[in-house]
Design a protein around this nucleic acid. Structure first.
Length: 376
DNA sequence: AAGCCGTGGCG
DNA sequence: TCGCCAAGGCT
């Protein structure tokens, strides 16, 4: 039975106009996608099978990170580690260095751990079910559904921020996020094409990507281009002229400013660095030594936390401050510099690295800013 | 289960 | 300018 046959066979009743509109959504969505799908580095040409490894890699990188930012990182990773076996055999250090700058560094640890687990527990082949994928590190409810749908054509609907927005508008969901997540999940699943007997394929991956593309290009957070939307006919929010009030969210609190000091110490053409603890903020990444970061900390207190180095009698305070904004607090760093003599020993748990090779270090961007400020 | 986790872009 | 937002997961 063809899809159009099923559509034609539907009974016409006085109340069926609305019903028709609802039933037509999945096909409208896919038709729009076939004409307007974005060309992305991890997306094969239309009709071609995606590589599960590439899908997984892109999905991890895309967690809370924009398409444009991810592009170059995805290309670099795929060129260096073309398959999950190669990545699983790489060192965590190499992976962290390659990830530096992309943020949310626990993703890089989980990425590596996941590759290792796929090699060790799954013979180097990704599980092809949502439940199987869900057991792997770094793969939560969204990512498991996304990989299952996109890479394995499983009939499931992942719900990300884009889809939350599209769906909450389409159905005018009044409940606030994140409480509304279960409702939105159910409503989103109605946008999947019908399952067919003996053939569970229903272009679920395309349906999901269609909604994401729609959210990214048409149903945007501000000033959505409703006139171009394939689902505009029966969008509840648009009928009210209230597209931008959805999705409803509880206001978030922004963190308090924290202050600290960073110490840029050079020994000839080398820089003094250390590795941050594995857990927590910037876990496992490289940094220059510094004070703790706390609210209302004064410069004198921070300066007392300078590393003890033979031959350093005074620190030179660089003019200005380095500012950086983390997810949950803004940071203001004062930078001190010092030069030490050749063969000066690095303090415990610190090391010297050539300034020329800093690009290869696992340096988060806040530290790149600090070093640039201190060396400049 | 709410808080923790980066960074860049955009209006 | 600055708050919001982005293909969330972990604890």
């Amino acid at each position: 039975m063809s899809l159009s046959g099923a559509a034609i066979r539907r009974k016409k009743t006085p109340s069926s106009d609305q019903e028709d509109a609802v039933t037509a959504r999945p096909a409208l969505l896919l038709a729009w996608y076939d004409r307007h799908r974005r060309v992305l580095p991890w997306r094969p040409p239309a009709g071609h099978k995606p590589d599960p490894y590439a899908v997984w890699l892109s999905e991890i990188m895309l967690q809370q990170t924009g398409v444009k930012t991810v592009g170059p990182y995805f290309q670099k990773f795929l060129a260096r580690w073309p398959d999950v076996t190669a990545l699983g055999r790489a060192s965590l250090d190499d992976v962290l260095r390659m990830w530096a700058g992309l943020g949310y560094y626990s993703r890089a640890r989980n990425l590596h751990a996941c590759a290792v687990a796929v090699l060790r527990d799954h013979n180097g082949v990704f599980p092809d079910t949502e439940e199987g994928l869900r057991t792997l590190p770094g793969i939560g409810p969204y990512t498991a559904a996304a990989i299952a749908a996109i890479a394995f054509d499983r009939r499931t609907m992942p719900v990300d921020g884009n889809i939350e927005r599209v769906v909450s508008r389409l159905f005018a969901v009044e409940e606030e996020l994140p409480q509304a997540k279960p409702v939105i999940q159910k409503l989103a699943a109605t946008l999947l094409g019908p399952s067919r007997a003996g053939d569970e394929k229903s272009r679920a991956g395309d349906s999901a990507q269609a909604l994401m593309d729609l959210g990214a290009s048409i149903c945007t957070p501000k000033k959505p281009a409703c006139s171009l939307c394939p689902l505009n006919d029966d969008c509840a929010a648009r009928q009210r002229g209230e597209q931008e009030i959805f999705p409803k969210k509880a206001p978030k609190k922004s963190g308090d400013l924290r202050r600290g000091a960073a110490f840029v110490v050079t020994r000839g053409d080398e820089l003094l660095v250390r590795t941050r603890p594995e857990k927590g903020l910037l876990g496992g990444m490289t940094e220059v030594p510094g004070s703790d970061w706390r609210a209302a900390q004064d410069d004198a207190t921070a300066l007392k936390q300078a590393p003890s180095l033979a031959g350093v009698t005074r620190w030179h305070r660089k003019l200005g401050v380095v500012t950086h904004v983390f997810t949950h607090f803004p940071l203001e760093l004062v930078v001190y510099t010092a030069r030490v003599a050749a063969r000066t020993r690095a303090p415990k748990d610190m090391r010297w690295v050539p300034i020329a090779t800093l690009d290869d270090e696992a340096l988060p961007n806040v530290m790149r800013k600090v070093i640039a400020h201190g060396l400049g």
